[in-house]
Design a protein around this nucleic acid. Structure first.
Length: 151
DNA sequence: GCCAACGTTGGC
DNA sequence: GCCAACGTTGGC
């Protein structure tokens, strides 16, 4: 079982939206490194739900991978903002996963707190200029995050 | 809204 | 394959 962190702008889709929907398809990721992480996710993996471009930004909750390696349908939808005309139909470029709501933390764990607690080596998220929207989290770090978030 | 830090594109 | 120009992300 692996831990991950996935970013979403809460104005587009928040932890409360996921709580309401119970599951969602994490579509729209158009970065190869993030795509590769998505492809390596397995059912039961846990992922932190990070609110980016928020005030303040931070980790809002936890979710679980419920379906692995799904072809992202938005790449073939000309009306979608994630449409990719260059993606071959017989070899889709963009994959993703379905995630399931696990919990919303009592209070948001702000990026600032994470910066104080973890070095960039421990948690890629806090590396300056990091724009990756899907990233792995070390198990030890994940445990500490859970402890902080739940207390 | 600004802009630094990226990732991508395309000419050469 | 290099790299300048461009577009995007996301903290502030």
């Amino acid at each position: 079982m692996n831990y991950w962190l996935m970013k979403s702008e809460p104005s587009a889709y928040s932890i409360d939206d996921l709580k309401r929907d119970r599951t969602t398809l994490w579509d729209g990721v158009r970065n190869y490194q993030a795509r590769n992480f998505l492809r390596s996710m397995q059912v039961g993996d846990l992922a932190f739900f990070y609110h980016s471009n928020a005030e303040p930004p931070g980790i809002a909750g936890l979710m679980k991978v419920s379906k692995p390696d799904i072809v992202d349908p938005t790449q073939f939808d000309p009306k979608s903002k994630y449409y990719d005309e260059k993606s071959p139909k017989d070899n889709p470029r963009w994959r993703t996963v379905e995630v399931e709501f696990v919990e919303a933390f009592p209070t948001l764990l702000p990026l600032e707190t994470l910066r104080q607690k973890f070095s960039p080596e421990e948690l890629i998220l806090v590396k300056q200029g990091n724009r990756l929207s899907v990233m792995p989290v070390e198990e030890q770090v994940a445990q500490q995050i859970l402890e902080m978030a739940r207390s």
